[in-house]
Design a protein around this nucleic acid. Structure first.
Lengths: 346, 346
DNA sequence: CGTTAGCACTCGGAAGTGATGAGTGCTAAG
DNA sequence: CTTAGCACTCATCACTTCCGAGTGCTAACG
């Protein structure tokens, strides 16, 4: 597929994409020859551009304007033309500087990561908190709210606190609940939630617990408590940044984007998808049926603990994004977050 | 002060404000006579309008446009002209319908309240969560994160969970921490945080605790844990709604508003202020030095438990807001939230 | 004396005009 | 295959004109 472009076409496409990223204005043939001395005349470039247009890498918004990359164009650029450098140490320390705050909760640290991403990239930062499923169990606590309603508090090994309300038929006193908490805390500490779920199923099947009433209740409760996904919350930071981008002079477009931010479900979906993969992921515009973020791109990377990926963070900006700058920033931030979460445990 | 306007002027001001709220277009003398049959000719109305302008209740954006209310105009309208009705039962049930969800955490319920406010008003909903100071103590838990760093988890009586990280010199084992938690939970349960703070100070002063080492540590820890304000988080829902308002065609203005939303500190300040007062509060535009929300108004009401006000919620919209509709909605929602939080407990 | 009709005046916005220039595609020469 | 040349297109901008909504003022009216 990528063979259909020869070296010259590639260089020209690259020039167009990069200039467009810089200027947000359609790029004409003369501009290409002026800024990149390829040893070609505008006329030649024009011919190539006509070909590129035919192949769908670029379009011209109207007859006498220059050309603008299509999504296919960006995709090709990102996949085969772009080379991302390393961050120089100055940039690294600029990122690190944002983290020199003590006494923060994990949630705050993650939110902070989103702010860093948005501040450094000047686009919008997104962070998905770890799904509880992906974390290591540290502590559980049951509190009785009212008849039949229990508040469950989980703490993960890294100190993330989550809570939910469950409805149950079991009528238990607070003292019994404490026993159950204690039992679970002793038995399950250090296991991953996945392991715990498996363990519960196993023990319940064996029924060996049945004649210990409390134990059986403990299992029942914890199964209920862990039944559905927890977490996977999305922090969006610096949404206002994106307003600076000229493409969002279009009110309608902007509204659509902000509605998407508000709903979050789409973002969760996208970030989840990226969590399956490894390394830096790039979603461009409405590729793969996400019409809502038409004209936008999303760059993500996963952060992880020693047990593997636990969450995802990234940057949303216009498709006309400065990929070569943003990609290493996202990458580095993800590494930094992983490291910081690890350090929390000391 | 309000004597400076006679009945006729008032009616005309009212007409202008209400028409402007409806149309977002400057209101001319003819429009006033057409829509409200006051038995006056446009010329007469013009004379009155000239007076109103001189007194600062209205301005005309340019020579040949109609008049637009100033902040002073809105203020007068809200304070003395406006009469807010009750919600009819249809609207009430429309609001209540949003709450027919079980198994939600308190945080989710509050967030839901913000969504309701935004959906019903079609402006932006804001909810400030209870400051921990204003709540009743239910449960505390200490978990050791690393040397010198403790995770503290608080639960309020209504089931709100908050956590923070504290740094301490005391090196305590997890077992000791559990003892401390147990002790505190038994001693303090049911007291308000205010009372607890007072109690800690008292006991520490009496020094009677000193010879019980654990107890003294418990006091020390809990003082540390409760030292600074917790909570007071602000949920902003339906920010995108406000984009539908014609006044935000102006990009600059919109950016400023969204930056304000992002920072939140200003909102916290405003909501805090409103929490001092009782009943429905109305902030109009940049009254009282809040330049950032120029052109916007904020309508708030407090929600409360049986022990008094604990939080604030409200609606932000353009100053050209439909006060008579929104005020009762905010009021009713606050009552509903109070009631729901109360019900959580039994 | 308050109210109103009449009128001249102002000014923003819409619509129309023409000049400008960036950019194109095509053709023919190098 | 590359390039110079050229006719053509079309968005943008500055400028004008026109229209109408709305005003303030004045004089007449009840």
């Amino acid at each position: 597929m990528s063979d259909e472009l020869n070296e010259r076409s590639r260089r020209i496409l690259e020039a167009i994409v990069e200039d467009y990223i810089g200027t947000a204005e359609p790029i004409g043939s003369r501009a290409v020859t002026r800024r990149h001395h390829l040893g070609l005349s505008p006329a030649t470039v024009r011919n190539v551009m006509a070909d590129l247009e035919e192949m769908g890498y670029i379009v011209s918004p109207h007859t006498s304007a220059g050309r603008v990359p299509t999504e296919k164009g960006y995709r090709f650029y990102v996949d085969t033309l772009l080379q991302v450098g390393q961050l120089d140490s100055q940039q690294k320390s600029r990122i690190e500087d944002y983290y020199r705050i003590d006494g923060l909760r994990v949630e705050e640290r993650l939110r902070e990561a989103g702010k860093v991403l948005s501040a450094i990239s000047s686009y919008t930062g997104v962070v998905m908190t770890p799904r509880f499923n992906c974390t290591v169990f540290r502590h559980i606590e049951f509190l009785k709210l009212s008849q039949g309603r229990l508040l469950v508090i989980f703490v993960s090994r890294s100190g993330m606190v989550q809570n939910k309300v469950i409805e149950t038929d079991l009528s238990l006193s607070q003292a019994e609940l404490e026993h159950i908490s204690n039992y679970l805390n002793q038995t399950l500490s250090g296991l991953s939630i996945q392991e715990i779920k498996a363990k519960i199923v196993r023990e319940m099947a064996e029924e060996k617990a049945i004649y210990d009433k409390l134990l059986s209740r403990a299992l029942e409760l914890s199964q209920e408590a862990m039944s559905d996904e927890l977490g996977g919350q999305v922090y969006i930071e610096g949404a206002a940044n994106i307003l600076e981008q000229p493409e969002f002079k279009d009110l309608e477009r902007m509204k659509r984007l902000f509605r998407t931010f508000e709903q979050k479900s789409l973002l969760v979906e996208l970030l989840d998808k990226s969590q399956q993969a490894r390394g830096v992921q790039i979603f461009i515009g409405s590729e793969s049926e996400y019409r809502e973020i038409e004209g936008c791109s999303l760059i993500t990377a996963n952060y992880s603990s020693s047990r593997g990926t636990i969450g995802t963070l990234g940057v949303i900006g216009p498709s006309r994004m400065n990929y070569s700058q943003v990609i290493p920033v996202v990458d580095y931030t993800a590494r930094l977050v992983s490291q910081i979460l690890e350090n929390e445990l000391e």
